[in-house]
Design a protein around this nucleic acid. Structure first.
Ligand SMILES: [Zn+2]
Ligand SMILES: [Zn+2]
Ligand SMILES: [Zn+2]
Ligand SMILES: [Zn+2]
Lengths: 136, 136
DNA sequence: CGCTTAATTGACAATGATTATCAATAAAGC
DNA sequence: GCTTTATTGATAATCATTGTCAATTAAGCG
């Protein structure tokens, strides 16, 4: 296997990783970009998209695709560990969750039905207590 | 509760429901539109989008959002029954599956963590035997 | 340190799926 | 048939995301 070269540590990438570390919420690339701008950084939108994508591929951040097709990112709580989420549809707050039994079951079912390269998506969403309290 | 009026049976809607009934595969609105055109129908693309959406809301067809954010539709095999899918990422062929244990577990977990309006997404994907055989 | 080189950036154009418009058409019900 | 009103379709508009490409700059080296 060819180990891809470690990405350069630019001030943009640093700013992005920094802002990510300050929130537990799932937010879109555009939302993160807005925050970075408000914080004084002048990172370009394309750079934010590119960085979030590479960080997600590297497993440094979690990424989920909403029903509307938008991709949301957040700092990965349990790095290196395969997991899923219980996420608030309103504010993006999320809990990391694990479903080991399901993982095994899915893999076996796939194989049984003749499928290879099995993958899966498991996401639970709802409205968190805070958002519910505020009628959000 | 106000029962929404039954949709009118137009020749376009009939054509769409008809073409849907001829395949078990998950396909995009545009793909279904192409097929309809090839079959001689002159349905408009917007109409295909609108019809598939309303059919999905009515539970008449299944809809899934891919990792790239594209929405795929297919005739609902088990109408009225809540279920999920094992889908081929290459050709769209799919099996309906059920995961009752997971359903209960997810609901309980959400409640335990203070979430309301709990919903979930569970999709298993892979490459089916046929596609694998053809190196697709 | 300088210097070289290839990765990264950012402003902006381009894409691609989906949605909105709105005048024309055609189900439904009487 | 006639009226009412949902539906259609051609097309413009959105919106998130990706591509372009010249300018910048992190890294590695001497
Ligand atoms: Zn919330
Ligand atoms: Zn998993
Ligand atoms: Zn297949
Ligand atoms: Zn379910």
């Amino acid at each position: 296997m060819s180990t891809s070269p470690a990405p350069r540590m630019t001030k943009q990438r640093a700013a992005i990783m920094d802002v990510l570390s300050k929130s537990e919420e799932f937010r879109s690339a555009q939302a993160w970009h807005d925050t970075l701008r408000h914080d004084g950084s002048s990172v370009g939108l394309a750079t934010v998209y590119r960085s979030l994508q590479s960080l997600a591929e590297a497993g440094q951040v979690d990424a989920v695709v909403t029903d509307s097709g938008e991709t949301l990112y957040r700092r990965c709580g349990a790095e290196d560990t395969h997991h899923h989420h219980l996420r608030c549809r309103s504010c993006g707050a999320a809990h990391d969750i694990e479903v080991p039994e399901f993982e095994r079951w899915a893999e076996q079912l796939g194989v049984k039905l003749g499928f290879t390269g099995i993958d899966h998506t498991v996401e639970i969403t709802g409205i968190c207590r805070d958002c519910a309290a505020q009628g959000r």
